[in-house]
Amino acid sequence: MRIMRPRACMLILGVSLVLSPGVIRGQTIGHKLEPYLKSGELPAVAAAVVERGTITEYGAVGTRKMGSEIPVTIHDKFHLGSDTKAMTATIAGMMIEESKLKWDSTLGDIFPELKDSMAADVEKVTLEQLLSHTSGMRADDENLMDLLKNSVDVDGDLNDLRYWIVKESVKLPLVAKSGSAWAYNNRGYTIAGAMIEKVSGKTWDELIVERIFEPFQLTTAGLGCQSSMGKVDAPLGHVKQKDGSFKSYLAGPNADNSPILGPAGIAHLSILDFATWAGWNAGNGTRAPCNIVSQQMLEKIHQPVFTVKGENRPGTPPAGQYAHGWGWVTVDWAPYPLLYHGGSNGKNLAQVWIDKQKDIAIVLMTNISNPKADDTLRKIASELYQDATTGY
């Protein structure tokens, strides 16, 4: 992103993936990460490796604010960006298994009161198309920017504002036949979130806390800017300016995207909590928590839908195949495609790499976003992956 019922599962004995607050297991890898601070021009970087449900390596180095000496810790909250999309897709999977939604539920099905105002064929756009960026709806254009600006004059909670985005967006003609083309679309994920809100009777913001953060014991997870107003109590997002200097952003209206876009990517959490979430996905939901979605549903969420050419912007999917909040990417340091997603709000960057065959997950986060930072996180992922898979 870049815009401004109980199930059988395996309980793991020994080291638990879902760590209690303050409990850390595994080896620290600060020495591996330190060299990348300078070479990648990163204020800070955090990374962790999960192997078969155990966090085996972790580390966080650097500063919360460039030019200062406020060291980051492994408990610091980094922004997740579009890696939030996989959580939204998982909540959608829950709604499907609870028979509140279907993969082929359409905008016309969920919002019948808006049918008369919908442009041609918009009523046929499905939940799956929205979650796979194949809806054919207008994406992150000036119209969406204008809607977000104008939303300040719209009364209501965030679910009301997302419904207003839906109401205004369905009037617009499709730019491509639904299901025939792929275009990264944060508007689409926001609309998918509104569909979830309509059938659940709760805001997406409540649902991600109740259905993801709490069951996974992601104690550092939250929504919006990772730092508090007026405080440098988390890694601040950074931008490298044209003159080569770095600008940091305290919490405020310009530090993160609009909360209306929550389903598309405004979550934050620590590297250890990110590892917990990634490791559960790597194990295909076979480990606790057991009451999220079935293994079959998680496989469906991970299943490729469309082959994409990709984009060059950090935090957007590269070339490969796109699923539902996840992509499959081929890299020269892995023997087969890995499950992947990146996330960025233009000032922070996060990546998750998963080898489902070996049950390994690698997560990385930094508090700056640009092509150099994106490439640097990939280099770290390559090193950590090779170390983790030595001997296989």
Rank of each mutant, 00 (worst) to 15 (best):
L148G: 06
H75W: 09
S132D: 14
D160Y: 01
R138K: 15
K115L: 13
S169F: 11
H133Y: 14
Y163S: 05
V72K: 00
K100F: 05
A89S: 05
L172N: 10
L130S: 09
D155I: 10
K102G: 11
V122F: 10
E128M: 15
E98A: 09
W164M: 02
L114G: 06
K102P: 00
L80E: 03
V175Y: 00
M87R: 11
K100T: 04
A86D: 00
L158Q: 07
N159Y: 02
Y163H: 04
H75F: 12
K100I: 08
D146Q: 08
H75I: 13
D83Y: 03
D83I: 15
D160T: 08
P173I: 11
G93E: 06
P112D: 00
D141T: 02
M118P: 01
G108Q: 04
K177E: 14
E113P: 00
E98F: 05
K171H: 08
D153C: 09
A139V: 07
S151M: 12
I74E: 00
T84L: 10
N143R: 07
L131P: 01
M137N: 09
E98R: 06
N150D: 12
E97M: 13
L107A: 01
V152P: 01
S117D: 14
D153G: 04
V72T: 05
L144H: 04
W164V: 05
S169H: 11
S132Q: 12
R138T: 13
M145S: 06
T126W: 03
W103Y: 07
E97R: 11
D109C: 00
W164D: 07
A119F: 07
D116V: 08
D121E: 15
E142M: 15
L107V: 01
L144W: 05
M94F: 07
L172W: 01
D83Q: 15
M118H: 04
V125M: 10
M94R: 04
M145K: 04
D116P: 01
K149P: 01
N150L: 09
K171M: 13
H79Q: 15
A86Y: 00
K77I: 11
E128H: 13
T73S: 15
I165L: 15
K167D: 11
D104Y: 03
H75M: 12
L130F: 07
G136C: 13
Q129S: 03
G136E: 09
K171N: 03
K85G: 06
N159H: 05
P112C: 15
V154W: 03
V175R: 14
S169D: 00
N159K: 07
T73Y: 06
M118I: 06
K77T: 04
L80W: 07
P173R: 06
T106C: 04
W164K: 05
T106M: 12
D121W: 12
N159P: 01
H79G: 10
P112G: 12
H133R: 14
Y163I: 03
W103A: 09
S117G: 02
F111L: 02
D104P: 04
K167S: 15
K85D: 00
M145T: 04
L127V: 02
A120T: 14
M118E: 10
R162S: 03
S117F: 08
P173L: 11
L158K: 02
G108N: 05
W103I: 05
A92G: 08
D155T: 12
L130T: 04
K167I: 10
L107Q: 03
E98V: 02
D155G: 03
E123V: 01
N143L: 13
L107C: 06
